[in-house]
Design a protein around this nucleic acid. Structure first.
Length: 515
DNA sequence: CTGGGGAAGGGGCCC
DNA sequence: AGGGCCCCTTCCCCA
């Protein structure tokens, strides 16, 4: 009996051992399957994300192109009879592209040959997110004729750019400023994923184009940096980064503000928003289709989490302007402004004098909106005209738009535009009083003060009859007629009475064809 | 669905 | 500066 029990115990022990082995094997197998599936899923997700980004960018490019063409068409109509300014601009651009342009004031431009930077259908912009150890992002912008252009990969210089001695057009001085970073996934192996980098193959990442002698442009550009190529001392680099947008740790994004034309771009491309850049105020811009009209793209990472006020402020704030800045951008705004730059622009061409507190942005906007010579096809207006709800925008677009909307207070402005045909049309008085919240302007301080109740919500006038509240006394007085039944205005044609003269007037217009 | 009227909320302007 | 009026637009209700 004892042996029997012993055998049973041994048997049970063996069974338990076998079960454990089997369980472990099963767990291991399950884990392996899970890992495999996870890897596959992750790969698929990553692939899908990349495809989504590519498609999104394509869509944005198409939209921008459409907007650009529309703007160009409008501009040509506006200048009917004279040579289209866009043509002039293009000629200038092309001239520069041919090496005819000369930059002054230490500006550098990266001129790409015409035809470069056309985005291919298989637009190879890639954004790799995450490498497990760092937030590395690789953004590759490849032109359509990259192959045709040969290995002539242009990149922005890094170290050399700080040295005025190297301040020359990269096109002519390209040999003097050897590329420091090349990242072409099609021709070169990917660089170690240890930093942010933006590379443009065949053509410059940032092209610019103007001699910067007549108008001023403020461009915000992300520069491509190569870790090993930036030989500047840290203080130098820091100095160049004194832009109110300190680079994120581990990020080599370097914001560059180029002052050649007063333009702030925000194309709303949200690609960078997905890149995880930690730089709150950096962006990069690239130019497209220079053969026609330069079209600027900008990835405004700041807009993804900040507000435009802060952005614009940072852009125009003293600390953000790098008068030696490189980089550039040309986009619709640039084109319009360059062609029809109002006198105020020229007079205010020195950004360094009054670029603080975002004031230039306001001046810029005001110039656009008040100067009839300024086309209204700038992104600002495009944004303003957008319906933030109904317009199908990408998240970044919508966000950018919202930010623009906040700044411009499009409702108020649109209303003001609708009323009386604009701010100053037909009025002799100058609207000197500008609301700091929506930037509407008024002829009188009292009107401004009254208007500000719109923002504060203050309604100090209460109806004693119905507890209704009003921001203005005259509105209360008007309202009280409802309770009193007072209708002092009678129609001379039909005898109908109205509480307000304007009602009578409308009545006369509609029913008696008067006025 | 349409048009008229009322209500409300804006800005311009004069006193 | 505030009051008051005019004019405009938008929204809503109703016949």
């Amino acid at each position: 009996m004892a042996n029997c029990n012993g055998n049973v115990m041994v048997f049970h022990t063996q069974i338990a051992s076998i079960m454990e082995v089997l369980a472990n094997a099963a767990v291991a197998e399950i884990c392996k399957l899970v890992d495999d599936d996870y890897a596959v899923c992750r790969l698929e997700i990553t692939q899908s994300q990349k495809e989504n980004r590519t498609l999104r960018r394509k869509l944005q490019l198409l939209e921008l192109k459409v907007a650009r063409e529309r703007a160009e068409r409008t501009m040509r109509e506006r200048v009917l009879g004279s040579r289209p300014r866009s043509v002039k601009i293009l000629d200038r651009y092309r001239g520069i592209a041919r090496g005819e342009g000369h930059l002054t004031e230490g500006h550098r431009s990266f001129v790409k040959p015409a035809g470069h930077n056309t985005w291919r259908d298989d637009q190879p912009i890639t954004v790799d997110e995450g490498n497990g150890t760092s937030t590395q992002h690789v953004i590759v912008i490849e032109s359509a004729d990259a192959e045709a252009a040969g290995p002539g990969v242009k990149q922005e210089r890094t170290e050399a750019e700080k040295d005025p001695r190297h301040s020359k057009d990269i096109q002519t001085g390209g040999s003097g400023a050897p590329p420091v970073a090349t990242e072409n996934p099609t021709t070169t192996p990917a660089q170690p994923r240890t930093r942010h980098s933006i590379t443009e193959v065949s053509g410059t990442q940032n092209a610019v184009l103007k001699s910067a002698t007549d108008t001023k442009t403020l461009t915000v550009t992300h520069r491509l940096l190569h870790t090993g190529s930036d030989h500047r001392s840290e203080p130098e680099r820091l100095g160049e980064r004194r832009l109110g947008c300190p680079p994120a740790p581990g990020s080599d994004y370097l914001p560059v503000f180029h002052q050649s034309q007063r333009t702030v771009h925000s194309s709303g491309l949200g690609e960078s928003l997905d890149t995880g850049s930690d730089d709150p105020s950096c962006s990069y811009s690239t130019e497209l289709d220079p053969g026609n009209m330069p079209l600027g793209l900008e990835i405004q990472t700041d807009l993804s989490r900040g507000d435009w006020n802060r952005y614009s402020s940072s852009v125009y704030s003293e600390g953000c302007l790098d008068k030696k800045g490189e980089g550039l951008v040309v986009d619709e705004v640039t084109m319009k402004v360059e062609g029809d730059v109002p006198p105020t622009w020229n007079a205010d061409s020195n950004l360094g004098d009054r670029h603080s507190q975002g004031r230039d942005f306001l001046d810029y906007r005001e110039s656009l909106e008040t100067n009839p010579n300024v086309t209204t096809h700038s992104p600002l207006h495009l944004f303003r005209d957008h319906d933030p709800v109904s317009t199908s925008m990408g998240p970044s677009d919508l966000h950018s738009h919202v930010l623009f909307h906040q700044v411009l207070n499009s409702n108020d402005r649109a209303r003001a535009q609708a009323q009386g045909g604009g701010a100053t049309s037909g009025n002799s008085k100058e609207k000197r009083f500008s609301c700091t919240q929506c930037h509407m302007r008024f002829t009188e301080a009292g009107t401004l003060k009254r208007h500000q109740r719109v923002h504060t919500g203050e309604k100090p006038y209460n109806c004693p009859q119905c507890e209704k509240r009003f921001s203005r006394q005259d509105h209360l007085k008007m309202h009280l007629k409802i309770h009193t039944g007072e209708r002092p205005f009678a129609c001379t044609h039909c005898g109908k009475r109205f509480s307000e003269r304007s009602y009578l007037k409308i009545h006369l217009q509609k029913n008696h064809s008067t006025l």
